[in-house]
Amino acid sequence: MGKYIFSRLINMIPTLFVVAIIVFLITRMIPGDPASVMLGPQASREDVEALTEALGLNEPIHIQFLQYIGNLLKGHFGVSLSYNQPITDLIINRFPNTVILAVSALIIAFMIGVPAGIISASKQNSLIDYSITTISLIGVSMPIFWLGVMLVLYFSVNLGWFPATGMGSMADGFISYLKHLILPSITLATIPTATFARITRSSMLEVITQDYIKTARSKGISEFIVIFKHAFKNAFNPLLTVLGLQISSLLGGAVLTETIFSWPGMGLLIIDAIEKRDFVVVQSTVLFIALIFVIVNLVVDILYKVVNPKISYSTNKGGTK
């Protein structure tokens, strides 16, 4: 197991390197002079030159790249001009808020999507199956930024049940904190919930025709145990495989959700930075999110192996998945 984790960690390095190159390339695509773009049209020539110097933009491109990689390895993301703060601090402040939102959404998605998929599969072709299938198809098609706005319209503006924006603080009490969290996490949970329901359903449908399910039934155990013990554990693997992709779409969805609800996370930081033309912050935050995603995927892969004893730990067996 340790060997497997180690080899996966080694495998991660080239991907991270490529991620760094991509972010570097994208920021160099900015037409014109980055420093003057960042400072805006009113900036004096001295200021622009000073910033150009500070960002190392006078150096040849390969030197710039080496400096950039060097800084990354040192964990040095630079200083934000608009926030007047080291970017590392900005990220450290914002990151936990995004995690809270994403984890809440993931919990909702799991608690609702998975049971819905199981029920749907075990009552295949019934009314409840059709309802769940239809609702989950609407779910995966949902523009969540619209759903968020609609939730604000009904539950904040019309009913006044929940605050429309912001993140509560624990100092105001847990209830207030929770009230702030509910609408954003429902918004963000929509697509993963629907996806989990769909994957769970199709995976369960495949599993319940297996011979070992017939064996389980032939033992005289209840249908509940057949479904939840024998079938679900086998249907779980495909869910884990999509979990990695779901994390990606969660982080993307977080940008939109945080914008709607002014939730002070990484997504809002990116959008604010874009408005302030603070490209260094955008670049660093995007890079950080990609890094998180790669690490989370690694963890999911390891989890997959832990859950599934059938898979050998050697990495290059056959080469196919």
């Binding site: 297996q210 011979d211 070992y212 017939k214 064996t215 389980a216 039934r217 032939s218 033992k219 005289g220 155990i221 209840s222 024998h230 554990k233 086998n234 599934n308 004893p309 059938k310």
Partner: peptide, 25 residues
């Protein structure tokens, strides 16, 4: 009542032992 019969009074074994045992237990 049927479940009380299954596995208790009447049991069954199947053709393919490679697929009739649950792989995850």
């Amino acid at each position: 009542a049927m479940r009380k019969i299954r596995g208790n009074e009447i049991s069954m074994i199947f053709q393919d032992p490679s697929t009739s045992l649950n792989p995850v237990y």
